[in-house]
Amino acid sequence: MSLKENSEAIFSESPGKIALRTLRKDKRSVISLSILGFIIAISLLAPVYAHFIAHTNPFNSSLDATTHVGGKVVPVLEASTTGLGLGVTPIGPTWNPTGYFLGADGQGRDVMARLLYGGRNTLLIGASAGIICIVLALLIGVIAGYRKGWIDSILSRLLDVIWAFPVYLLAISLSVVLLTSGLKLGFIHVGPGSFALPILIIGIVYIPYVARPIRAQVLSLREREFVRAAVGIGAKDSTIIFREILPNIIPSVLVFVPIIIALCMLTESALSFLSIGVQPPQASWGTIINDGLALLYTRPWVGIAPGLFIVLTAASLNLYGDAVRDALDPKTRSRGDA
């Protein structure tokens, strides 16, 4: 009601602008974007924290490092006092940002600094993989749905093959094969330690989940009368795809973006946890959880902290995805407005 009056009183708005306005007013998007913004900001500031606040290098093991606790100098690693007295126990959280805020890991490295660096990697890989996934899926979905015929058959079978494997099984097999040897494809040569490998692997694994619904939508759009009308005025296929089909696909693609990025991030963490994602000495939230596994009983924060960040990031992305979906769907929009 009020929406209609507004749009007539001021000027007419495109469906996209209306959705954007709805999204801005949605509390869920405000909350989730604030959390995401905070996590991204502190992750980007990882080097600042490491160099200027904690004065530590989170990539070198420092077995004989010391820190100050309550004015006293204490070693970061102490000989174990439990069990057989073998190995070392790292220092626990000092809750002091100038050093070992969350304690040290088994190699005497500052967990907080590693957590921030790890966040950079996890977010970078998750977001890049998600975007690669969506771009490729859009390409495949639109071509398959628009051209139909044998091109569609080939692309659809390809998606079926990727789809047929459980995501993690496929990601794990690809990683195991590619990480040991790297990837050589003609001119392209990707070394075993490069982030390009986990990004590609994770991106490819989720393509069918996005490409299939896009293909279905294109198939139905191309039978719509406004697409026939475009054929009728003599438009070329490329014109029809870019000017008639794509503008109607973009909203559903936008809904996929946060959700797929969340999935890619979770997959990256899982692969890194299994030591087949980000390779040491680089960190990611998954590798830190792995580091924390051995310290689970003595120093639980090493595993819990990255776990919390993963949950918080994935939950915020999903919440934002819900808000985007509702803003773009005119049926739920009126409900959110009231």
């Binding site: 406004f226 005025i233 003599g234 438009a235 503008p247």
Partner: peptide, 30 residues
């Protein structure tokens, strides 16, 4: 495609015949 400007079609359902994401001006100019 070139000949199509000589003959045109008008459709039954005016709700389906206009792209919801384009302005009326753009639609008529297309």
């Amino acid at each position: 495609r070139a000949l199509r400007k000589r003959f045109q079609m008008i459709f039954q359902d005016p709700y389906a015949a206009l792209n919801p994401r384009r302005q009326i001006g753009q639609i008529v100019e297309e």
